[in-house]
Design a protein around this nucleic acid. Structure first.
Length: 264
DNA sequence: TTTCTTTTTCCTGATT
DNA sequence: TAATCAGGAAAAAGAA
């Protein structure tokens, strides 16, 4: 994200999406109402979104609203389209809804400039994953990844090309920080410009990391050990004397205001 | 299969 | 006393 206009649109659209997720979870788990944090952690859809799996790894039919947003963002970036003219309502639809749209509807929604581009891109992603799903199911000639077979999850059919390791820990942390509307008190910036941040709910963040790695025994103690290894590689810098406080180092990226174009 | 990287796990001791 | 920090050591897991 580099355009301030676009980031403004995306921030509002993300907020709209978040506001639709929470009531849904409350309906499913009324007993969890007392804690917004527990709602987030116990909701697989929320975890899936916040763990940042890219739309590029999933068939469009399984895209979340967040994935759709990310996809639109990339297309807008590549066409230098003016994001201010986008309708926020349509930026929050999910993959299945998006896949129902034909070219005319896409043009009607996104306009004559962006509509055809989005339609074509969507068809390409659909084709790509249709082919992959067919070969996964039946074509024994297809080369399979080396190494041990990946553990299958409930979402396997939606995650054919999901990389098990995915993003690194520091990227996971960074993504929580740069999505404040999905970060409900888990972490905060101490000095946004310098990249200094603090864990507010250390164990909750560790649990989320554990969910992402399918490791239910993850703790902040273990997570922090991994964080300390980043000092040597200068992905993080030590912040002396302050508990739960870290600072991004020169070998980290993607968090600076000028890099992501967020008006913070 | 081997090597490398990135965690994960466990630990001891220090600090807040 | 509990939580956190610091960092050594070894193992696990996935990528190349």
């Amino acid at each position: 994200m580099s355009s301030p206009c676009l980031s403004s649109v995306l921030t509002h659209a993300n907020l709209a999406m978040y506001q639709t997720i929470v009531p849904e979870v409350v309906a499913q788990q009324p007993s969890a109402l007392h804690s917004i944090n527990s709602l987030q952690i116990s909701n697989p859809a929320y975890i899936s979104n916040i763990s940042g799996q890219s739309y590029k790894q999933i068939t469009p039919n399984c895209w979340t609203a967040d994935n759709v947003l990310e996809w639109i963002s990339d297309q807008v970036e590549s066409t230098k389209f003016d994001a201010n003219t986008l309708s926020l309502a349509y930026c929050t639809m999910d993959g299945p809804t998006l896949c129902e749209k034909n070219e005319d509807e896409m043009i009607e929604i996104f306009g004559p400039q962006l509509g055809p581009q989005l339609h074509q891109s969507l068809q390409e992603y659909k084709t790509k994953y249709e082919v992959h799903i067919k070969t996964e199911k039946g074509d024994s000639r297809v080369k399979r990844p080396r190494g041990r077979p990946p553990k299958l999850s409930r979402q396997h059919s939606c995650n054919i090309y999901h990389t098990p390791r995915g993003t690194h820990l520091w990227e996971f942390i960074r993504d929580i920080l740069i999505n404040p509307e999905r970060n409900q008190g888990l972490m905060k910036w101490e000095d946004r410009h310098e990249g200094v941040f603090k864990f507010l709910k250390s164990e909750a963040v560790a649990q989320m990391w554990g969910q992402k790695k399918k490791n239910s025994s993850m703790t902040y103690e273990k997570l922090s050990r991994a964080m300390r290894y980043y000092y040597k590689r200068e992905i993080l810098e030590r912040v002396d004397g302050r508990r739960l406080v870290y600072k991004f180092g020169k070998n980290s990226s993607g968090w600076k205001i000028e890099e992501i174009g967020m008006g913070m």
